[in-house]
């Protein structure tokens, strides 16, 4: 049982979508980092400000219904659509726009891109 806080994530330079409000809960506590090199600084920042649990998707897997937000470093084709398709809020650290075979699932209510740690602020 934890105390969680909300954050607002706004698009960065050249980015698309959002802003998103990220609000972890006991049911959805995970800040899910699907990025190279461990927990991404953007995921770490979201976890720090919300009290959510940073989780490295390349180390072990998590059920979708536990994920508060997925943080990705997608170059525009694959991961960009996977999490929105599952209705999971998605933050891309690269400045991408909807594209790829799953583009139709990517909306500004579910997705924001070009995000740096400074684009994450208390809601």
């Amino acid at each position: 049982m934890s105390e969680y806080r909300s954050v607002t994530v706004t698009k960065g330079k050249g980015g698309w979508g959002g802003p998103l409000t990220i609000a972890p809960t006991d049911e959805r506590p995970l800040i899910y980092s699907v990025t190279g090199g461990g927990i991404h600084p953007v995921a770490a920042r979201i976890a720090e400000l919300t009290g959510g649990e940073a989780f490295d998707g390349f180390k072990s897997s998590a059920p979708f219904d536990k994920i508060a937000v997925a943080v990705i470093d997608c170059g525009g084709t694959a991961r960009i659509g996977v999490y929105p398709m599952k209705k999971v809020l998605t933050v891309d650290v690269h400045a991408t726009s909807p594209a790829g075979p799953l583009a139709s699932f990517i909306t500004d209510k579910l997705f924001v891109s070009g995000v740096k740690p400074d684009d994450v602020t208390p809601a």
């Binding site: 390349f58 997608c74 084709t77 400045a95």
Partner: peptide, 22 residues
């Protein structure tokens, strides 16, 4: 992406400039 994650997006689009960063 390739060196960290083994990730590659190969596009048979014939472009001489990448449309997307990946």
């Amino acid at each position: 992406n390739l060196l960290n994650l083994g990730h590659l997006d190969i596009k048979a689009d014939g472009h001489d400039r990448a449309q997307l960063p990946g």
